[in-house]
Design a protein around this nucleic acid. Structure first.
Length: 501
RNA sequence: GACCCAUUAGCUCAGUCGGUAGAGCACUUGACUUUUAAUCAAGGAGUCCGGCGUUCGAAUCGCCGAUGGGUCACCA
């Protein structure tokens, strides 16, 4: 680590201004070092059990010696005997410490240990008079000194600013948040297993793109020094995964971070995790089957049920899920039948009469999509596939044979939120080039989210891509649903924050 | 980007009408060999988010700014 002079000086100044709690802890560390008990010199410890193992297998372990390690989270000294709770990665367990077991010097040292210190404890498993499974310490080793006080045990840490910026504190003092991240990990690994079992190949495609494509979004820009070029952080994995299909891999997927330089909200973080998968010779209906089966399978395996409660609302993920076209959805929820509307102007008039804001140049499809987003989306609480999106808003989806204005595309809505997006992929390179030109026109007119022209991708399509189904699922939103998390920041370990000062 | 709300001890929070800072936990000292938010006694701890202003006097009122949260806009 390199420290500038300024940093060293500012640390010195901080040392002088340490508050009482910090000063006491530094002094304790200093004393330990002088006595040759510097905890930071220890490199290795060998625990034999986790707290949870001991509690679950008490009958088998009662009376036997174990070695545990973890963080002191409570401490009650009662003269010549003490109790403390140790938090390890699987939970917590009480230790019982007596001077005549530990010895005078070791017991005095223990009394000086602070909440937050990491210790190793060896001792005998037993149950206290009050019936709590505990470890009777015969030896305690200080494995690391905590120089910062932990937030309070009873009220926990509530300040969301500190919780997100110093997630380690959140994880230590708010046990329920640990569950969310354990579930997140299980959800993702179950998803991998599901796809691997079905012959999908997991691949990794570049994050640095010279053209940011595959979605309509504003990208982050970064710079490569040696090449002296600006590069974009990817906004989707779509175009590279399709190249894999062209290259002859019939089933591929990537679970990866994508970056969109847009507003932040309860459902949006600038970097988020998506899975995209592509299957040759499949269509968007196959993607619907796969989506509902995969999500239901994950829910069942990870939560033990396909019925979940999200923020007080019961959501039934048991397949099959409702499927309806965008036109039917708009008809059902607003009474307006777009089958009967053919002219752009007529569509715009309908939007205006419903107080849906649209631009004067909006076409039939754009209006249909706007009315859907404004009037229907929020009502889709139970899982619903909305199918057959207008072509104007779907530059990468295959045009419907039955209706030139629409595409073979669906989005999945649960709890009024978009969770997945899928198409029968456009594999006609001539059509694709025209769609990109259309997008490039919008871009030239100032739409920063319009797709960039990508000649390399069109050229790849010209080599020939089989008919393919593609699907993208927002992992963070899926995790939110399955863990009943209110904000996307509650399922992202270190959400993007503005730096302090 | 716009609007609304919040910011007081390490943490969780009170703070009345503008009168000079409080509690619980945590911390320090002492007592206590089966406690459960241990208990008992004593003690220490503050840039009241920052700046400017109004005022005899500001945590409190006004303005500007910072950070966070919420709603909207944009998006997934």
């Amino acid at each position: 680590m390199n420290h500038s002079k300024d940093e060293i000086q500012s640390n010195d100044i901080m040392d002088e201004n340490l508050n009482e709690i910090l000063k006491v802890r530094h002094d304790k560390l200093e004393r330990l070092r002088k006595e040759g008990k510097d905890p930071f010199k220890i490199t290795k410890y060998n625990p034999t059990h986790y707290s949870e193992d001991i509690i679950k297998n008490f009958d088998g372990l009662d009376g036997t010696d174990v070695v545990i390690a973890g963080r002191i989270i409570t401490k009650r000294v009662m003269g010549k005997a003490s109790f403390a709770h140790i938090l390890d990665s699987k939970g917590q367990i009480q230790i019982f410490v007596q001077v005549n077991r530990l010895g005078e010097e070791a017991y005095e040292d223990f009394k000086d240990y602070d909440i937050g210190d990491i210790i190793g404890v060896s001792g005998e498993v037993f149950k206290t008079k009050r019936g709590e499974i505990s470890v009777k310490a015969s030896e305690i080793v200080l494995l690391s000194k905590s120089l910062q006080p932990l937030p309070e045990k009873w009220h926990g840490l509530k300040d969301v600013d500190i919780r997100y910026r110093q997630r380690h504190l959140d994880l230590i003092v708010n046990p329920e948040i640990r569950r969310t991240f354990i579930l997140r990990s299980k959800i993702i690994s179950r998803m991998r297993k599901y796809l691997d079992e079905r012959g999908f190949l997991e691949v990794e495609t570049p994050i640095l793109h010279s053209i940011a494509g595959g979605a309509e979004a504003r990208p982050f820009i970064t710079h490569h020094n040696t090449l002296d070029i600006d590069l974009y952080m990817r906004i989707a994995t779509e175009l590279h995964l399709k190249r894999m299909i062209i290259g002859g891999f019939d089933k591929v997927y990537e679970i990866g971070r994508v970056f969109r330089n847009e507003g932040m909200s309860i459902k949006h973080n600038p970097e988020f995790t998506m899975i995209e998968l592509y299957e040759a010779y499949a269509d968007y209906k196959d993607m619907m089957d796969l989506t509902e089966d995969m999500v239901a399978t994950i829910a069942k395996d990870v939560l033990g049920t396909t019925v979940v409660t999200y923020q007080g609302t019961k959501v039934d993920l048991t397949p099959p899920w409702r499927r309806l076209s965008m036109i039917d959805a708009v008809k059902e929820y607003t009474g307006v039948d777009f089958n009967d509307i053919t002219e752009d102007g007529e569509a715009r008039d309908v939007a205006k009469s419903m107080e849906v804001e649209i631009e004067d140049s909006a076409t039939w499809g754009v209006v249909l999509n706007s009315i859907f987003e404004e009037k229907v989306e929020e009502q889709l609480v139970q899982p619903t596939f909305i199918m057959d999106y207008p072509i104007e808003v779907s530059p990468l989806a295959k045009r419907m044979e039955e209706d030139e204005r629409l595409t073979y595309r669906f989005e999945l809505f649960i709890t009024s939120r978009e969770l997945a997006n899928a198409y029968s992929e456009l594999n006609d390179p001539i059509d694709q080039r025209e769609r990109f030109l259309e997008q490039a026109k919008k871009r030239a007119e100032g739409d920063e989210e319009a797709h960039m022209m990508d000649d390399d991708f069109v050229k790849a399509l010209e080599v020939g891509m089989p008919p393919t189904g593609g699907l993208g699922i927002g992992i963070d939103r899926l995790v939110m649903l399955l863990t009943d998390s209110y904000s996307i920041r509650d399922v992202i370990l270190f959400p993007t924050m503005r730096p302090k000062e």
